[in-house]
């Protein structure tokens, strides 16, 4: 992500541990999977019914441990991104969700989210690995992404990577 000097700014929406893909993109809305903008109106609905109405472009979803556990549905990170969320922060992520997020170009950052509360104003310096909590006046560090994932993110996701290289170039 070294090329990425972007600073992300937004407000924190805090969720608990074990936010499953069923809470993010419920199975009962299976029929909307071919209509992502419509599905995005229900993002995280079963965890916080008001979320999709409250969230503004650039805001952050902040979870506890094992964020995104459950099914392989890529629709989960895709609609979080589509809802305008700038990044997801959590203490840890489930494997498939993490990989899917990179593939769709949604930054997912592992950090100590106990230091972030609902409504905190955050600034994220992606290239420097720093999350600035301006409400609490503290800086948090996040783990750097593996090299392979940075390459994919820099190509705008996996589709972009394959298109550009006519195959893998990792």
């Amino acid at each position: 992500m070294s090329k990425n000097v972007k600073i992300l700014r937004g407000t924190s929406f805090k969720f608990g541990d074990d936010i499953s893909t069923d809470l993010i993109a419920p199975g009962r809305l299976f029929h909307l999977r071919s209509n992502l903008p419509e599905l995005a109106k229900h993002v995280l609905e079963d965890a916080d019914p008001e979320f999709s109405r409250k969230v503004k472009p650039g805001d952050f979803v902040v979870g506890g441990k094992n964020f995104g556990l459950g099914s392989s549905r890529e629709h989960a990170p895709a609609i979080i991104k589509l809802a305008g969320v700038g990044a997801v922060l959590a203490k840890s992520f489930a494997r498939i969700f993490f990989r899917n997020s990179i593939n769709v170009g949604l930054p997912v950052l592992v950090c100590d989210t106990d230091k972030i509360e609902e409504g905190d104003e955050l600034e994220i310096l992606l290239s420097r690995g720093i999350i600035r909590n301006n409400t609490r006046n503290i800086d948090l560090k996040f783990n750097p992404l593996p090299e392979v994932m940075i390459k994919i993110l820099n190509d705008g996701g996996l589709v972009g990577h394959i298109k550009k290289n006519r195959g893998f170039n990792l």
Partner: peptide, 14 residues
């Protein structure tokens, strides 16, 4: 192992 649709798309094509 399970993966998301984009990884699977690449699996189908390559």
């Amino acid at each position: 192992t399970g993966m998301g649709s984009t990884d699977i798309a690449v699996g189908y094509t390559l």
